[in-house]
Amino acid sequence: PPPSSAAVPPSLPPYFIKGSIIQLADGELKRVEDLKTEDFIQSAEISSELKIDSSTVERIEGSHTSPNVAVVQFSVGEHRAQVSVEVMVEYPFFVFGQGWSSCCPDRTTQLLELPCTKLSVGDVCISLTLKNLR
């Protein structure tokens, strides 16, 4: 039988569970719920491969495949490239200056115990791209 240590669905990564230990690029360890916008920005500055991009939420829709799945459309970076991602409604994104947000914060808090606000159109999320695309 599968381990019964957590009630987290297999589709949700374990690092979003409250109390998970996250290592920043400078080696500092923080709990996932304690992360701040600056932690991501500073880690990306240290990184030789990754850079932070701003991804603005343009649309949030339900999925045709499952009631627990949402399709979030982002406008990414200065070129405003349109990117859609299909995620579980409880999947948290980090909003600049605000913190963790999801399409269904009640489920996120229930499943992960991660303090979370409602992800809304217009929110600017932290995302990553490669530094050297050329």
């Binding site: 979003f16 230990i21 996250i22 290592q23 932690d39 990184s47 070129h79 490239a81 990117v83 990553l128």
Partner: peptide, 25 residues
């Protein structure tokens, strides 16, 4: 061999979605 169980540590970038914009030029 039984490996000691330690607290997992996750890299910061695993928490951030990788949204690579499509390059049109």
């Amino acid at each position: 061999n039984v490996e000691p169980r330690s607290v997992p540590v996750f890299p910061w970038h695993s928490l951030v979605p990788f949204l690579a914009p499509t390059q049109s030029d």
